[in-house]
């Protein structure tokens, strides 16, 4: 069928945190630079008072900004937040009540998909399904590094989905799960923090070794210590093992029938218009075989290590759209 492009406003996190834009201004800039038509937002990032106390005025302004730019809301990213209280995590019923207003707000905004997270158990999903159905919102569990299509937590959810068997329960593949290289910008940050080339080489080797992320990191940090690497970049390198996943890219194919939206995660696009750290040609080949009309948000996460002055997020989204269009055209053409 088809894949409709768009952007998650999470890509503009640096600009948002700096207070450089209000929400309507950010959407106007998206429209002006033709980065739509899809717009995804994170409730707890973009909306003051989310989910219970968002003002009517803010909702009105959001809707009117979307409308005047000929854009469409594709997904609302929600959070499970089960550890809101340090010593008393949410029970099944508390989790349901925490998610309920988030799903209801998505319904009010006519957003077709709510991003949910892996912390939600099969019991919670079972109780959320009727709420989603009532609000005509599909719940998409994001599969994000270090998880992948076939890691134990995702397999448990896949089984629960089979049992509940509802069109309102699905997945949102996030391409961070299946990366082929550590982004060069991240490595440059570690170099500037004092990591030597031998340290970078040890890091790359540990990252490419199969196994549990925390174990691979511990192996690396031990080697880094023996190499005499400074502590700070070694500590910072820990997130490489959880942010950048090494799961098998071809496994996404199994999830296609239950995919409700896509997170086009990326960090870097080189001068040839390709992403060195993520195999977009391979990904677009797989996802172009979908039998649904899917939406995909460009999700640039280079702001994890680059300042606003170092990289313009809007420009990165333009490059990402050009790359995805090229690979999608090729993939659809090869299917005849």
């Amino acid at each position: 069928m088809s894949i409709c492009l768009g952007v998650t406003l999470y890509s503009m996190t640096n600009e948002w945190l700096a207070g450089a834009y209000t929400l309507p201004q950010l959407i106007d800039e998206m429209g002006r630079r033709n980065l739509g038509p899809g717009v995804e937002l994170i409730g707890f990032q973009s909306l003051r008072g989310f989910p219970n106390k968002v003002s009517k005025e803010d909702i009105k302004e959001l809707k009117s900004a979307i409308e005047r730019n000929n854009l469409v809301l594709t997904a609302l990213a929600c959070n499970a937040d089960i550890a809101l209280k340090k010593d008393a995590w949410m029970s099944t019923d508390e989790s349901v009540e925490y998610m309920r207003p988030q799903i209801e707000l998505a319904g009010e905004l006519n957003v077709p998909v709510v991003r949910i997270q892996i912390g939600l158990t099969p019991e919670v999903l079972q109780k959320l399904e009727p709420i989603a159905a009532r609000n005509k919102v599909k719940l998409g569990m994001e599969i994000h590094a270090p998880e992948g299509p076939n890691t134990p937590k995702v397999l448990a959810t896949r089984e629960a989905y089979e049992l509940i068997d509802s069109e309102y329960l699905g997945f949102i593949p996030d391409f961070s799960a299946t990366m082929r290289a550590i982004p060069l910008g991240m490595l440059d940050k570690l170099r500037s923090g004092g990591m030597s080339e031998a340290g970078i080489e040890a890091l790359d080797r540990a990252w490419k070794t199969p196994g549990v992320p925390i174990k691979r990191y511990m192996d690396f940090s031990q080697e880094a210590r023996s190499l005499g690497e400074p502590e700070l970049p070694v500590v910072q390198a820990r997130l490489i093992f959880t942010m950048f996943g090494r799961e098998n890219l071809a496994d996404w194919e199994e999830l296609l029938p239950r995919t409700v939206h896509i997170h086009g995660k990326y960090y870097d696009i080189d001068e040839t218009g390709n992403s060195p750290s993520i195999d977009y040609a391979g990904l677009m080949r797989i996802f172009s075989t979908t039998e649904r009309n899917l939406t995909m948000s460009s999700e640039w996460e280079g702001h994890a290590y680059l300042d606003m002055t170092e990289q313009d997020a809007f420009g990165m989204v333009e490059k990402h759209h050009a790359m995805c269009r090229r690979f999608l055209d090729e993939a659809f053409a090869s299917q005849g």
Partner: peptide, 10 residues
């Protein structure tokens, strides 16, 4: 990158 409740400030 997102808002948190004050209960999360340790």
């Amino acid at each position: 990158y997102r808002s948190l409740p004050l209960s999360c400030v340790e």
